[in-house]
Design a protein around this nucleic acid. Structure first.
Length: 303
DNA sequence: AACCAGGAAACCG
DNA sequence: CGGTTTCATGGT
């Protein structure tokens, strides 16, 4: 009958599910997962089969994260893959000890990190999704960016239903690859945004671009070079993707407006910091500049 | 209405 | 190269 299969994931020492939930709920327009009563609902397609998950803190007091599979139990290999995905997505495998040590003695970062100790760097494991989201986010405000993503997902992705709940999936590369730029423009994508996004989708669909070829033994600098070779992708986008998808802990979107605002806020300044100052501050955060950036971003959201 | 937004390319000395 | 201008489109 209603037999439910669960997987429990070990959590790292410093882990605060509440902070993770807060990050995941920062936009009302987020369409690729839902959060309800401290449970995250998320769907994947693994080798053609949908896998529906409810992710929450386990019942045991050990601080485990548990995945409950909905609408049928996947086979063990798919459960393992789903579990790997969640581990990567919610960043359950990184030891933040060195980062916390470093932050502790940093006047700017110290208070920020102390206040949100246990927040993880929420990732975007799919390269296509990460690149798409980042291209969408170029030079527009976040609210609009979430709207554009939603339109992309609703128009070209599939939607699963389970017990009245909708699970939306990011479009497949092959599907996006055949979309015409005009279709995206009619959804209020700018022409260049549409072209870049479709260029990326075609590259991923053709196998000319993959996550594997951008990760180790590839260095951050090499990954950046490969990504910025694509028209429409500059240093900001490359580092953003390196940070959220490729998991380079030192990825650093130097020119990011949100980062600048967060630094300004911490310094109590009226003006945004000059780039030279941003670089100087960040040099103390190596090799964790990506985590520093993510924590600083978290100071901008609601409370 | 003006200015801004989790930029990138093209252009120019 | 390093700085400047243009592009593009909604949000506030």
């Amino acid at each position: 009958m209603n037999q439910q299969t669960r997987i429990a994931l070990e959590t790292p020492k410093d882990y605060h599910f509440g902070h993770v939930i807060r990050y995941l709920t920062r936009s009302e327009s987020e369409c690729l997962h839902q959060v309800e009563e401290n449970t995250v609902y998320k769907a994947l397609v693994i080798r053609g089969e949908p896998v529906l998950m409810a992710i929450g803190m386990g019942d045991s007091p050990g601080g485990q994260v548990s995945i409950r599979f909905l609408g049928g139990t996947p086979d063990s290999e798919r459960m393992q893959e789903a579990s790997d995905y969640v581990k990567e997505w919610l960043d359950l495998g990184t030891d933040l000890g060195p980062f916390y040590d470093l932050a502790q003695s940093d006047p700017l970062l110290g208070p920020v990190v102390e206040q949100r100790r246990g927040l993880r760097l929420i990732g975007v494991p799919s390269l296509l999704e990460a690149l798409s989201w980042t291209v969408i986010g170029q030079q527009i405000n976040l609210a609009f960016a979430y709207n554009l993503k939603k339109r992309l997902v609703e128009n070209f992705g599939t939607c699963l239903q389970h017990e009245g709940r909708e699970f939306r999936l990011f479009p497949e590369a092959g599907r996006l690859a055949e979309v015409k730029p005009e279709e995206l423009q009619s959804l209020q994508f700018s022409r260049t945004k549409a072209e870049t996004l479709l260029r990326v989708a075609r590259l991923v669909a053709d196998g000319g671009l993959s996550k594997e070829q951008l990760q180790a033994p590839c260095t951050l600098q090499e990954a950046e070079a490969k990504l910025t070779a694509i028209k429409g992708i500059g240093p900001w986008t490359a580092h953003y993707v390196a940070m959220r998808c490729l998991r380079f802990t030192d990825a650093f979107p130097l020119t990011d407006v949100g980062l600048h605002n967060a630094i300004r806020l911490q310094l109590g300044d009226a003006q945004k910091p000059p780039l030279a100052l941003v670089e100087e501050l960040a040099s103390a955060w190596r090799p964790w500049r990506g985590y520093a950036t993510f924590y600083l971003w978290s100071t901008l959201g609601p409370a």
